[in-house]
Amino acid sequence: MELNLIGIAAALATFLGVWMGHVTVRKVERETVDLRTPTRIMLALGIGFGVFSILTPSLILSAMSGIFAMTLVWDSHEFIRQQERIRIGRAPANPNNSRHAKILAEHPTATTVDWLEREPRGDLYSAVDLMAFKEGVE
């Protein structure tokens, strides 16, 4: 029986696409002042992979590049969504980035605290717990 490698190729592209997207969006949004440049680059890369996916005769390469195309186009929109997470305080702001510094000054919900840097404890945190934690870090 011949093994069909397309599933593994698609799995690899999906995992890498999601992982790289996840890490890249958070890191680039944190460091970049003008989000238009990374947004355009992501979009252009996504479209590039999309065109390649349509033109290549290889089914495996078409599958992988099609998945990269869609995830990159999605990620190009994630920069703005990540900025929104910074505004509402669900992702930590970087005070050394002037765009984030402005958000920190204008939005009382924004914070430099990374709320997710902890292990689950099996119990709900009270508002007092969270406030004490936030003050401790800031």
């Binding site: 093994l3 599933g7 593994i8 698609a10 799995a11 999906t14």
Partner: peptide
């Protein structure tokens, strides 16, 4: 799921099994 996708000859089914397997790992 990803291992199982190796034994499916239909391209769409195999690829979707792989994608689903990867999303389970993620």
């Amino acid at each position: 799921f990803i291992f199982g996708s190796l034994f499916i000859s239909n391209y769409w089914v195999s690829a979707l099994l792989g994608v689903f397997g990867a999303s389970l790992i993620w």
